[in-house]
Structure formats: structure tokens, C-alpha cells
Write a protein that binds this DNA or RNA. Structure first.
Lengths: 95, 95
DNA sequence: TTTATATTTAAATATTTGTTTAATTATTTA
DNA sequence: TAAATAATTAAACAAATATTTAAATATAAA
């Protein structure tokens, strides 16, 4: 559990997650988005992977990264007890 | 924004937040819950305060801490875009 | 089968973080 | 007003983190 919170603590990692909402991306494409060396991005991807916030599959010489449900469910589950205490924006349509 | 994620990264701070779901608590009462010195808890409370996850008011010589909506809204807002991508547990009743 | 490309792993380092002990501030009570 | 209580602030330090450069691995193309 700790690892998920550690993962989303870093701004670069949060940007990577946001970037992946556009769909699966190669490690190189992800690295291009940032003013930072590839090894540094690689390290961030590794941490997000450990937190199960992303996943990857191999496509030839490329590694394709995608969002992974598990880590987000962990965050959601942690957050749940606190929603009881606050009026949070309600969904516009019936779920 | 960064400060909120930093705040919830620490397990002690997450326990403090959980403890405060039981209602407002004095600094001393909070400190008792943990095998840790008061200055350390004080520092954690300060960080949670900075993140607007908690608030306090003075009652004589006591400082009474409570949960604060603002910080949780920040987390919720960040999480929102990701909910689109995953089937998350649905509410049991109409909201 | 050599060379280029995509990416990670390893080693080193500066910065940040969590904790402790000691000192300080503020309030209450005797 | 002096002593006790509640809590924070300050200084010091060990542990964890993000980054870089250099080296290694794996696949593709020439």
C-alpha cells in the first residue's frame, strides 16, 4: 500500500500517469515529454510499475506502457472512508 | 498541490487522518496513539495542516485538530480523470 | 555479423525526509 | 507569581529519494 502513495508523491510520475490517459505509450515517447534523462524516466516507470499504477508489454524492441487498474483501486479504497465526511461533487447522471 | 501528495505519503500521517474520522482530537490525544515522540507528531500535524487536510482551533491550552475538506477535494480532483478509465465500485444507493 | 536503436541497470551524489533531544511559548492552577 | 501542563520550534543526524553519467541488455536493420 505504501508504495502507491510513494509513487504518486512525485510530480513527474503524476505527469506520466496523466500522459498515459491518452493511451498506451512507448518508454521513449514518454521520456520525450520530460526535460530529464531516460534513466531517470525509466526509474520512475519502474516505481509506477511496482505500485501497479502502470503495466507494460513488449513489442519488439519497444516497451509499451499502459495504465493499470489495481493501483488506482488501492487509492480509491483508501479515500473511501473520507468521502463520508465531505460533500464532494456529485455525478451529473445516474450511475 | 504537491504538498497534499507529500502529506499522504507517510503512514503515520495517514493514520492520523484516519483517527480524525472519529471526530476532533487534541494534539496530545493524537500523539498517544503512536509510539513516537510528541515533537514528531507535531511535525506531522504541521505538514497535514500545510496540505489543508486538517485544521485546528485553540481551546485553552489545547489545540484541537479536525479534518479539513480542502485537501481531500484536491486529491479527489486529481483522481477524477482516472476514474474514467476503470470500473470502480458503484454506490449502492442513488446519490 | 556488425552497427544502430530502445531501454534498463548500476554506481555515485546532492537533496529531502522523519526522528530524536533540548529549548521555547502559552495557558492553567496552586 | 511560581510551578505544572500542553504543545511547538530548533538543531542535529541517519535514512530515503531523484537525478546524473556510464555500462549493460535486447532487438532490429544493414
Amino acid at each position: 500500500m505504501d508504495i502507491v502513495f510513494k509513487a504518486i508523491n512525485d510530480p513527474t510520475r503524476r505527469e506520466i500517469l496523466r500522459f498515459l490517459t491518452h493511451g498506451p505509450q512507448n518508454a521513449g515517447t514518454i521520456a520525450q515529454q520530460f526535460n530529464m534523462t531516460k534513466p531517470s524516466i525509466s526509474h520512475h516507470l519502474d516505481l509506477l510499475k511496482q505500485a501497479q499504477l502502470i503495466d507494460f508489454s513488449k513489442n519488439g524492441q519497444f516497451l509499451v506502457y499502459t495504465l493499470n487498474k489495481s493501483g488506482f483501486e488501492t487509492i480509491h479504497a483508501w479515500f473511501q472512508p473520507f468521502t463520508m465526511f465531505f460533500e464532494l461533487p456529485k455525478p451529473k447522471i445516474r450511475l
